[in-house]
């Protein structure tokens, strides 16, 4: 049945494009997210993460492309109470208290959770009666989380949810999120904290210049970049020769310090030692998500697809 196929994905983005003036914010982006997936959108500033989120929420109209949430339009999904969101641009009135904010949000939905429950889950209880304008950055973020949560959504969209939080708040925030996602809910979040993506996401989508450059589990994304880095002190080497070694993706040389990003570090190391038997101080390290992030989102890509 066509309908069943349609509703399969929690989020379905097809060929999305959005241009602001001369800038292509999102460029032919296609992405499917299954129900229950927790997806981190990563990328440097201006990679198109926020624009993508705003389009999937129906707040920004794409120049072209299709968006479906649970098989319906973003506006329909919102009207059906399926979507909760914490936006960077969405704000609350400073004169309202946290509780009033959550209350107003709750009142818009037919099947919202209890206001006090949402407030407790987000850890807002202690300052629920304070005016929003008087709260700290982290407290504001938690209030926004409570407001996003109160409709008991199937899909949560979070744009840099922990941006103003201290370490402890961040841990509490993700603990609350874990509670929430164990019930099989779908989460899409953007973050600059790669550790959050590593710890929390089932799947990482890396964006650059409005396009997806890597998509998969953290391990898969890390593996997409040449697997390991060899560092060594090599006398009389040249970048060209190092680059030509088997298994080497890219090589950098600073003085005698060579840094080789390798897809096959074993082959590269053997070849390196054959060419430069006097190479010393050798270390071989695994790539972290951060290395992969830098490699995949650098403006001049360190590694081009061959």
């Amino acid at each position: 049945m066509a309908d069943a196929e349609k509703t399969d994905a929690a989020v379905s983005l097809k060929g999305l494009r959005k241009t602001f003036g001369e800038v292509r914010a999102v460029d032919d982006l296609t992405l499917n997210i299954a129900p229950g997936e927790v997806v981190a959108l990563l990328g440097p500033n201006a990679a198109g993460k926020t624009t993508t989120m705003e389009m999937l929420l129906g707040l920004t109209t794409p120049d072209s492309g299709e968006i479906e949430l649970f098989g319906r339009s973003p506006r329909r999904a919102a009207a059906d109470g399926l979507v909760g969101a914490m936006l960077q641009s969405g704000g609350f009135l400073g004169e309202m208290t946290s509780r009033e904010i959550v209350q107003v949000m709750a009142a818009q939905y037919p099947k919202a959770m209890k206001v006090d429950d949402a407030i407790a889950r987000a850890g807002v209880t202690k300052y629920a009666k304070l005016k929003y304008s008087g709260l700290s950055g982290g407290q504001k973020q938690r209030t926004r989380f409570a407001a996003a949560l109160v409709c008991d959504p199937d899909l949560l969209v979070l744009d840099e949810p922990t941006v103003a939080m201290d370490v402890q708040s961040r841990q509490e925030f993700w603990a609350a999120m874990r509670d929430y996602t164990t019930a099989g809910r779908t989460v899409v979040f953007a973050t600059h904290y790669l550790a959050e993506a590593q710890d929390f996401a089932d799947r990482v989508v890396l964006m650059r210049h409005g396009k997806i450059v890597a998509d998969g589990s953290v391990d898969a994304v890390v593996a997409k970049v040449d697997g390991r880095t060899i560092r060594a002190t090599v006398e009389g080497a040249s970048v060209e020769l190092l680059n030509a070694l088997p298994g080497v993706g890219t090589a950098q040389l600073r003085g005698e310090q060579a840094e080789l990003h390798c897809s096959d570090s074993d082959a590269a190391l053997r070849a390196l030692l054959a060419d430069h038997p006097r190479a010393r101080d050798i270390s071989v390290t695994a790539m972290s998500l951060e290395d992969a992030f830098v490699a995949l989102t650098a403006d001049e890509p360190v590694m081009e697809e061959v």
């Binding site: 919102a78 969101a85 936006l87 704000g91 609350f92 009135l93 818009q108 939905y109």
Partner: peptide, 18 residues
Amino acid sequence: GLERQAGWNRQLRLTPLP
């Protein structure tokens, strides 16, 4: 105008409120 500046109306647009 203040609500538009704060983004409150955007937040409300994410709800079923037409």
